[in-house]
Amino acid sequence: MTPNVTESSTLSEEELKNFDLKKLVLENGDYTIFPDVEYPPLVSFEHDDPGKRADPNMTSLFEKATKIEKLTPKLGTVIYGLQLSELTDQQKDDLSLLCALRGVVFFKKQNITPYQFVQLGKYFGPLHVHNAFGHPPHFPEISTIYYDRKSAVIQEKFRYYRSSDAWHSDISFEEQPGSLSFLKIDTLPSVGGDTTWADGYAAYDKLTPTMQRIVDGLEVEHTGEYHRQLAAAKGTKIRRPFIDHVHPLVRTHPLTGMKSLYLSPIFTSRIVGLSLHESEAILKLLNDHVIGGHDFQVRYKWEEDDVAVWDNRCCVHNAIVDYFDEGLRHGYRVTPQGERPFYDPSSKSRRQMEQEKAANGNN
């Protein structure tokens, strides 16, 4: 299990339940803290995915929502009329499966509080407490999203930055990376600040059979060097040492059984067992494949108080940094950890599964 990390708080339980980060950021600006503390090591655990208990038809979600909208044929679903803070256990189980099938699911006009956000995330697994990222007071499980045009440091850092360089799957450098991620955006500039997601199932299917045979079974080292460099630039403490981990390049999803290209460009450093030149060539090819894969991407235009829930095991994402001259973008994220990534040689691609269903007369 993950460490039980708590930090001193003078708030009562009632005050914590009503803590309002949107109000705090609008009144006080950047509230993010980087505590000078040390966290204990993460400990391996057996992940019990709620999606295993899901209704295959996900009726509890589809029949209770006022509207369901697909953003692309395979990736991205918008749900209207449901509040995440009021989901039943069956709806949470069904949500886990829906994310595994559709990659990312969006909920409109959510009134969920930070306290409720943490409680919701815990249902899906132990929440990751980041060893270098900033978080709000009282909630170490929450990662703060805060970028403001008033910050000269941020303006300079991103002056020559390309958003296409930052595709990633959350905390893939951990032994047991994120399963789902929950992100609420509650404050937006007048324009800009979209987020993009790419479908790992489709990214794999878009490779030729020859390339699929090359990448199947390969393993990649994931490192936290990106966050080490950020912490050094900010002069903030790394609260738990980063430990590099090796994960399969093609990952089998435990709920769908389908193969997904498991790529996390800002965290992947090398392919194990290949020369530097071979590793760099294949990783560049695959990174370019994902970056240019507009036919298996979705770009989401946020509205205030939207929540995105996505499955890190079958999609990668990337924030579009185009809004620094427009104003403040603020939100917060929690990420439950899942199983250690694995590759099952007998697993199949989504295309293979769909072809087999069609051949058997199942739609």
Rank of each mutant, 00 (worst) to 15 (best):
P137T: 13
W167A: 06
R102S: 15
I112G: 08
R213W: 10
T210P: 15
N131S: 15
K108T: 12
Q116I: 12
F158Y: 06
F182M: 04
L183A: 13
T195Y: 09
I171L: 13
L207Y: 04
D205Y: 02
R213N: 14
D186A: 12
Q116F: 07
S143A: 01
A198H: 13
Y147S: 11
A202Y: 05
V153C: 05
V118W: 06
D186H: 15
P209Q: 01
V104E: 00
G103W: 03
G134K: 11
T144Y: 00
I145E: 04
R213Y: 12
Y146R: 09
T195V: 14
R102E: 15
D205K: 11
Q110V: 03
I142F: 01
I142T: 06
Y160F: 04
D194T: 10
Y201C: 05
V191D: 15
I142M: 02
S181Q: 05
T210L: 11
F106W: 10
Y161G: 12
S179T: 08
A166S: 01
A166Q: 03
D170C: 07
A152V: 00
K150D: 14
F139Q: 00
G103D: 10
S151Q: 15
S164M: 09
F106A: 10
G178C: 03
F133Y: 06
P114Q: 02
L188M: 14
V215A: 09
D205G: 14
Y160T: 11
L101C: 14
A198W: 10
L183H: 14
S143W: 05
Y160I: 06
A198M: 11
Q110F: 03
F133I: 01
K109P: 03
V104F: 02
Y201N: 04
Y161W: 11
T196D: 13
V129C: 14
